[in-house]
Each structure stands twice: as C-alpha cells, then as structure tokens.
Design a protein around this nucleic acid. Structure first.
Lengths: 109, 109
DNA sequence: TTATTATTTTCATTATATTGGAAATATGGA
DNA sequence: TCCATATTTCCAATATAATGAAAATAATAA
C-alpha cells in the first residue's frame, strides 16, 4: 500500500459517523446494507450519510453495488489487510513477534 | 476498546508525519528512537515533531521513556491489536472468515 | 552555578473537514 | 408517461487540525 492511500483509509475511519458505518458494514457481511438502511439506523440526514459513504468508497474501505433503485454498501476487508501490512512492515527490528493478529471467528483459535 | 479512543488512534495515524513516525518506531522495535533522532530523520522543526508525538502518545500508540536528557519513544502494539478487535467485532454476519491477520515475521506462515 | 543540549509550550496563521437544507438526478412502478 | 422513492450534489456556515518561529522548561556536564 502506498502512504497516501493509507492516510486516506485511516482518515476515513477516524470519524465517528464513518467508523460506525464501517463497523455496521463489517457486521452486515457480504450482502451489506443500503444507503437508506444505514440512514435509518444512524438517524442522520441523507446528505451527511452520502458525504461519508463517498469518503469510505474513495478510501476503498467500502464498495457499492447497485440493485434496482437501491445501492448496497459493503466492507472491503482486503484494504484493511493491506493497511495492516503497511503499518507493520519490517517491524520490531527483525525480532520475531506476533505484532497484530485478528480473526473474525475468535473461537477457532 | 471504546469508540472515542479508536477515533483518536485512527486520527493519530491519519496524518503523513505521524504515520511516518509510527512506522519508524514500529521498525525500531522495543528500544525506540529519541525525539532528536526522529527530528533528524524526518527533517522537521522540533515544535512540529513534539506536537505530533504528543498526539501519538495521547492516542496510546506510542509510549515515552526518559533516559538521561533524552526521551525515547516506542510503538505500543497492544493498542493496534485492540483497535483491530474493535473494527472486526461481530464481523461477517457470523460466517467464519479470516478477516485480518498480520504477523511481524511473515516467513513463519 | 553557568553553559549546553534536549524537548515542549505558546500562539497566530493557514489549511482542511463536517454539517445539513435545498435542489438535482436516477430508478422502477402504475 | 407521470409519480414516488432512493440517493447524490451543491453550497455556505461552522468547527477542527497543522505549521513553525520564538520563548520556556528540563537535565546534565563542566
């Protein structure tokens, strides 16, 4: 990942509304949620939601899928993974470590 | 992790100078780097560096250690881990997945 | 104590981000 | 086609963050 995308990704998540949207989409899984469903859950004006969704899409954290007159948004995990690689690149002065490690199904550990 | 800390952490990294500082500290490992070493590597005024270091410490991404008249800064991985748990909480509608997974020693995979 | 080096604080300037109302656009149903 | 609904764009007001020069503080050595 290139540093400017990393900054965009981090900046996209560094805002309460967007962070909440992203977490809702993470929880929603592949099918995602429509803009309307999000607006309802978050109780924010459409203009505000639209602005924030654009930021998330621009940061490649969220992808949009058209279905009839709805637009469904869902989380893109690959960006998250690239970001983490970028953050931990050449870490710990070469000393082996478990820097960060997360798995969605925590019971499998 | 609480949402406000998550926002602080993400916001702390969502800035070129701070992101670069953090990555340098990740690479430096446990011993970290002094403010002076950082200022030299980054070629930025002391005031600017100090401002950004404060943000990183406040976000709990970086810890400071006094040694004589030097202050050594180092990366705090536990905050990174908490942030990732927070981001991937209840992910993927319950369907098992490897949401994000990073290990500092990538050859061990 | 005085000098020297390391780092932080203050502050004003400039730049960037967030908000939401209103109008515009797009889609599909009747 | 015309209407209702879904979403986005525009815009101006407001809020928040970044920068760096200069002064202040802190620690050690001589």
């Amino acid at each position: 990942m290139e540093i400017n995308l990393a900054i965009r990704v981090l900046g996209a998540l560094a805002q309460e509304t967007r962070l909440t949207i992203f977490r809702l989409l993470v929880q929603a899984g592949e099918s995602g949620l429509s803009a309307g469903q999000l607006a309802k859950q978050l109780d924010i004006p459409n203009a505000t939601l639209s602005f924030h969704l654009k930021e998330l899409v621009h940061a490649e954290l969220v992808v949009a899928r058209h279905e009839g007159r709805f637009i469904y948004y869902s989380a893109d995990f690959s960006t998250m993974n690239s970001l983490l690689s970028f953050l931990t690149e050449n870490c710990c002065a070469g000393i082996p470590c478990n820097s960060v490690e997360i798995d969605c199904d925590e019971t499998r550990r």
